Amino acid sequence: MSTFTIFLALIVVVAFLLIVVIMVQNPKGGGLSSSFGGGGTQQLGGVKKTTDFLDKSTWTLATLLLVLILASNVAINRGGENVDSKALDEDAATTTPALPAPLPATNDAATATPADSTAN
């Protein structure tokens, strides 16, 4: 298992968790975050603390997702080939591509125009 595969799996997990945390939030306090615990007086930590936790977890997961995406770019296996631009290669810029050979000229009746055949 390569490092890039591990980063990709972590990115998928963090993205899923971020989606769940964002969907649970409601800015007016009436979403799923306020219904944890069933009753209004028996809520775990209260609505305010739940909102603070969800807000902090959203920022944490978003930051973690960004870091994982940037780190996965470093871990991509490029196959050991040179990934520099061909436009910057000095050897390629000085050589000209070979032109195709010209077609041979033929003088047969099929290529003659009607104007040529009637002008006697």
Rank of each mutant, 00 (worst) to 15 (best):
I11D: 01
V47Q: 04
L64I: 11
G80L: 06
A87R: 14
D91R: 12
N120F: 10
P104W: 00
F16T: 09
Q25W: 03
T63F: 13
G38F: 02
D55R: 11
G30Y: 08
L65M: 11
F4P: 00
D55Y: 11
L18C: 02
S33P: 00
K86F: 05
P27G: 07
S33M: 05
K56R: 14
L61N: 04
L54K: 02
V21F: 03
A9R: 08
I69C: 08
I76H: 14
T113W: 02
T60D: 00
A93S: 12
G79C: 01
L65V: 09
D108K: 09
D89S: 10
A87W: 13
A9C: 05
D116K: 15
D91H: 10
T58N: 09
A9D: 06
T5S: 13
A119F: 13
D91P: 00
T41M: 07
N107S: 12
L54S: 05
S2K: 05
A101C: 01
F7S: 05
F53I: 00
A98F: 06
A105R: 13
D91V: 11
A15E: 02
L32P: 02
K49D: 06
G80V: 07
T3D: 12
I11Y: 02
N73C: 11
T94N: 13
F53C: 01
A105P: 08
L66S: 15
N107H: 14
L10Q: 10
G29L: 01
N107D: 13
A115M: 09
D89K: 06
G38A: 11
T95M: 11
K56Q: 09
N107L: 11
F16I: 10
L8C: 02
T3V: 08
T118M: 12
K48W: 01
D116Q: 15
M1Q: 10
I69V: 15
L66W: 12
A92K: 13
E81W: 14
V67Q: 03
A110C: 04
A15G: 09
Q25L: 02
A119E: 05
I6A: 09
V67T: 10
L61M: 09
E90A: 15
F7Y: 10
Q42H: 09
A87G: 08
